[in-house]
Simulated assay, not measured.
Amino acid sequence: MNGTRADLLTISLFARATRLSQKALRLYDSMGLLPPVFVDPQSGYRYYHMDQTETARLIGLLRQLEMPLSRIFEVLQASEIERAPLVRAYWREVEADARQKKQLVQYLSDVLEKKENHMFEIQTRQVPEAKIITIQRRVYANDLPAFISEGFGRLMDHLKAADAPFAAAPFVIYHGEVNHDSDGPVEVCIPYLGTVDPGSDMNIRIEPEHPEAYATITKAQCAFPEILKAYDAVSLWLKENGKMCSPLACREVYFENWDGAGPDDLVCDIAYPY
């Protein structure tokens, strides 16, 4: 402890000086964001120094932005020159999330008002039987892109090491709803030729021959919630044409290199087996 007890403020006085509640100060202490400079070992009373008011004010302002405490900890741990870029990066994420929610509101409005969707041409095809290697996992919406990217990467590396070429385009099967409350499961799949031993969490099986209806979409249209429109369009086509969905789940077939594609390039088929 620097200085004397007379230099310090009780938690109630420090709360008044910083306009933070005592409950908030105790939380920030437990998170390591703003620990008191001294805690009386007998009474457990917390004492703060006036020099800590600047940190307290910064925390309060960041909370006004609804920045999570874990992100605030990162800002406080960063050097002074790194702090402003971290705040700007966080706000870019907030704005991107707001744009996505605005698009979702428009999508929901269209659904509730039963507006017809004529954006997509629905086609059909017969998909031959294929031997596929897969990784399946339960994931929520926030973790889905990372899982798909990582899963495809691992499967591709595994097939390359076994000198087993692709037999068709990679695809993702959704065995259940994926959102903030439901976790699928989701299965990344690659059809291949040759002989491959499965990895520790990989599975090899035969995907049966089947017909499917599909809509082809651009990379930009793969973004949520825009991609939902393609799913709706294929589902509606099946209903209007008296087709029953098969036990095989809906899927996204990625026939182009994702990283090399531009936003207007066609990269994916939204497909429903029937």
Rank of each mutant, 00 (worst) to 15 (best):
D232C: 04
I173H: 00
W258D: 05
S109F: 06
N203F: 12
R16H: 11
M119L: 14
V37R: 14
Q136Y: 01
I217D: 01
A141I: 11
L155G: 08
A146Y: 09
V186C: 10
L144S: 02
L155A: 09
K160E: 13
V127D: 10
N179W: 08
C245G: 06
A141M: 11
E240K: 14
T4R: 14
V188A: 12
V186N: 09
Q221R: 08
P170M: 03
A15I: 04
K229L: 14
I148W: 02
E95H: 04
E256L: 02
C245H: 07
L112T: 08
Q106Y: 02
N241R: 07
F14W: 05
S43E: 08
M1N: 12
I227N: 13
H158P: 07
I11F: 05
N257L: 07
D264F: 01
R205P: 06
D264Q: 13
H175Y: 11
L58I: 13
P273E: 01
A249V: 08
V196H: 14
V139M: 02
A215L: 02
N257C: 07
A164P: 06
R251K: 14
Y28C: 01
L159A: 00
P208M: 07
N257K: 14
I132V: 15
C245N: 08
T10A: 02
P211C: 05
P208H: 06
C268H: 06
A141W: 12
I72A: 00
E240T: 09
V37G: 14
E95K: 08
S182T: 13
A233V: 01
L33F: 10
E207G: 01
Y214C: 00
P145I: 06
P191S: 11
L27E: 10
I173K: 12
L112V: 12
P68C: 09
E54D: 13
S182E: 15
D40R: 09
M31I: 03
V105E: 12
V196F: 11
G44S: 09
S70K: 14
L112S: 07
R26V: 03
L69A: 15
G153I: 04
Q136K: 10
R19E: 14
L236A: 13
Q103C: 00
A84M: 12
G260F: 03
A271I: 02
A168P: 08
R137D: 05
V39F: 07
V94I: 10
L25F: 08
F38G: 00
G176K: 09
T4G: 02
Y192H: 13
L33Q: 10
K219N: 05
V234D: 05
L8Y: 15
A162P: 01
F255E: 01
Q136T: 11
E212F: 02
A223W: 00
A17R: 11
G260M: 08
Q77M: 14
P185E: 09
V267Y: 04
P263C: 07
T216M: 02
R205K: 14
P145T: 06
P41F: 02
